[in-house]
């Protein structure tokens, strides 16, 4: 860990100004990702700008409807919040699927969105990695690839996004408020996270100095049921092999509306637009769900270690939608 300076600015604007002015500066929020990376040597900042006490850490209703989540809201508090549990059980479940109780108590909403990949080669400074050191190559492409992406990857990077919360927010059409050196702007999900292309070092569309200050969530339509299902190599405290965030409205046996996002498959939370389109208006049956999921995974590209992922994704999507359709309204 390279020595670094530490700063506690008086407000968010000052924090943005400080980080924007120093290419070697970075923000510190909950620290659960950054401190890990500092110790691994993945991130070697010259200045840490601590966001402690600078950002909202609560959930409130917005005047025109919807929820506004302060970027500093810890994952645990967000998952337990009554408004989230009532309106977006999928989001609460996604948060509770992630990490552990201790980590959720520290990890922030903004930080979770910017969580970096768990690719083992990204985390090993001795291994070439385009995401960590652009131009060095991708070790995962021909390496151990159980977690590798199967959708939207490039020959430069096959890493997957590790956040569960971000998958749910991607399904829920969340919007992120960003404070940058040029002022405030809104970035929608999907849209925040990038596919790797030939710039895998860029996880998101944010620029240096940009700071997430809040996440906004539109209210769900009446009759929506939602769920999050995470499939992983142990029963808890593990990253997803595949995860599914699904929201479903069924009327008269047909799908009236569906929101579907997938985790563990791509460099970004994967909004399953193709499946959503196929399903809207279709009969709410397991066959239709499976067909739609297959269509979504049709372009999947796999290697020997992750060849199971498309089938697992199809099975999981089918199971989640089938169970939602079978559930009574609530």
């Amino acid at each position: 860990m390279r020595p670094f300076a530490y700063s506690r600015p008086r407000d968010a604007a000052a924090a943005v100004a400080e980080v924007s002015a120093d290419p070697e500066a970075c923000y510190l929020a909950g620290g659960t990702n950054l401190v890990d990376h500092l110790r691994l040597g993945i991130t070697r900042p010259g200045l840490l700008v601590d966001l402690r006490d600078l950002l909202d850490d609560g959930v409130e209703e917005m005047p025109g409807g919807g929820l506004r989540i302060g970027a500093a809201t810890p994952n645990s508090d967000l998952a337990a919040h009554p408004l989230v549990r009532r309106r977006h059980p999928m989001l609460s479940a996604a948060l509770l699927s992630g990490a552990s109780g201790q980590l959720r108590n520290a990890a922030s909403t903004g930080g979770n969105l910017l969580q970096r990949t768990r690719c083992a080669y990204f985390r090993d400074t001795a291994a070439p990695c385009n995401k960590r050191e652009p131009g060095t190559g991708c070790s995962a492409l021909e390496g151990h690839g159980r977690h590798n992406a199967v959708l939207g990857a490039s020959r430069h990077c096959v890493a997957v996004h590790p956040s569960d919360m971000a998958v749910a927010l991607t399904a829920l059409d969340a919007r992120v408020r960003v404070l940058g050196p040029g002022g405030e702007r809104v970035v929608p999900l999907p849209g925040l996270h990038r596919l790797p292309g030939d710039e895998p070092h860029r996880d998101t569309v944010l620029e240096h100095g940009d700071l997430i200050t809040a996440v906004e969530l539109p209210d769900p339509p009446r009759g929506r049921r939602s769920a999050y299902r995470k499939v992983r190599d142990r029963a808890s405290y593990a990253f997803a092999l595949v995860s599914v965030a699904a929201a479903l409205e069924v009327a008269d046996g047909r799908v009236r509306g569906v929101r579907l996002a997938l985790g563990g498959l791509a460099h970004a939370p994967w909004r399953a637009r193709r499946a959503e389109e196929a399903l809207t208006g279709a009969p709410a049956t397991a066959d239709a769900f499976r067909e739609a999921a297959r269509a979504e995974l049709a372009d999947a590209r796999t290697g020997p270690d992750n060849a199971f992922k498309p089938a697992l994704a199809v099975a999981t999507v089918t199971a989640v939608l089938r169970d939602l359709a079978a559930r009574g309204d609530r």
Binding site: A120, Y121, D124, R234, S236
Partner: peptide, 16 residues
Amino acid sequence: HVVNADLAEYHVPVHA
């Protein structure tokens, strides 16, 4: 090199 050389990726059972 052991690729999964930590307790996040070298799995042992958790309580669950």
